[in-house]
Amino acid sequence: METSNTITILLSFGLVGIGCLAIVEKFVPLIPSYVLLMCLGMAVPDGVTLILTILATTAGSVIGALGWYGLGSMLGSRRIEDLVARFGKYVFLRPSLYARLVNAYRNNHFWVTLIGQTLPTARVYLALPAGVLRLEPWAFLAATSLGTLIWNMPFLSLGYALRDSGHDPVGVGFWVAMALVGAELALLVGLRFWRKFISQSTRAIAGNHH
């Protein structure tokens, strides 16, 4: 009830309130982001367009991500790891998840950040190890903005389309999130096999030349 009241109060402030909700969601993930976004799409205040709502939530999410980035950069690896070990379980950030997020950055930083913004849970905390590792700020900002836009737009748009329809945002949002994650995983697997195929073909051609 308190969460619902908070959302209602912030929505009364129009775009500023919508942006604040997106910031809060990055630090206090009490409900899944897809549920919040669906609800926001269904409850766009009068006089506010869907496009402005998308931009406001994207800006808010990016500001929240920059907050995590700044925290990681300021405190450094050891203190962040200690904090995660002591308090991470209270915000769904266990040490094992944090370690996986850090390890993910062994690959291309831009794509890890972009794709990470479209994965539940990871999208909330990925900026923390990015700050600890002090990734290039402008590339991080660009990847975070694009990834956040890709994540926010479908849920807000669907919520907006389902206004006054009586559909449950939790159920609809869940299946849309699963569809997005499934498509993403299928794309990643496909790219992995394609790279493997190209690599094997290149070696085979080189071997024939010898």
Rank of each mutant, 00 (worst) to 15 (best):
G166R: 06
D164F: 04
A65V: 00
L128C: 05
G60L: 06
A56R: 04
S96P: 01
K89L: 02
P29C: 06
P29E: 04
T53L: 06
D82R: 14
L126I: 15
I31V: 13
F110L: 05
A122Q: 09
I150L: 15
L141W: 04
A59M: 07
N108G: 07
M38D: 11
E81W: 10
L40C: 14
F155I: 11
V102E: 11
N108H: 08
H109C: 02
T49P: 08
R94S: 06
A43P: 13
R100A: 02
G47R: 13
V48P: 11
A161S: 09
P154D: 13
T57G: 04
L141H: 01
G64N: 10
Y34H: 14
P120N: 12
G72A: 08
R78D: 15
A143L: 00
I80Y: 09
V91Y: 03
L114R: 02
L133W: 03
S77E: 15
L30V: 10
L158Y: 10
I51L: 15
F92N: 04
A43L: 15
L114H: 02
P29L: 06
A142T: 09
N108M: 01
L71T: 14
S145P: 02
L55E: 08
A85H: 09
G72E: 07
A122K: 04
A65H: 00
D168T: 06
Y125S: 08
R123C: 12
S145M: 12
L83V: 07
A85W: 04
P95N: 09
W68Y: 03
I31A: 08
F87L: 05
R78E: 15
P137H: 05
I63S: 07
A130Y: 00
V132A: 04
S33T: 08
A99Y: 08
A139S: 14
S33Q: 06
V84D: 10
R86S: 08
S157C: 09
Y105R: 01
V124G: 02
R134F: 02
L119H: 10
M74R: 14
R134N: 04
L158H: 10
S33P: 01
W151S: 09
L30T: 04
L83C: 06
N107M: 03
R79L: 13
V28G: 01
A56D: 05
G64L: 11
N108I: 00
D46S: 15
R163D: 03
T49N: 09
G70C: 06
L133G: 03
T148S: 15
T148L: 06
Y98I: 07
P45W: 14
G47P: 14
S77M: 13
T53I: 06
S77V: 10
G166Y: 08
T49I: 09
L133S: 03
A99D: 11
A43D: 15
R86G: 01
V132Y: 05
P137V: 04
A65E: 01
P154I: 12
R134D: 04
K26R: 08
S145L: 13
P120R: 12
Y160T: 03
I115M: 05
L156H: 12
L75Q: 13
A59K: 05
P137E: 06
L55Q: 07
F155T: 12
L71K: 06
N103P: 00
T58D: 07
R86W: 01
A59D: 05
Q117D: 02
M153G: 10
I51S: 14
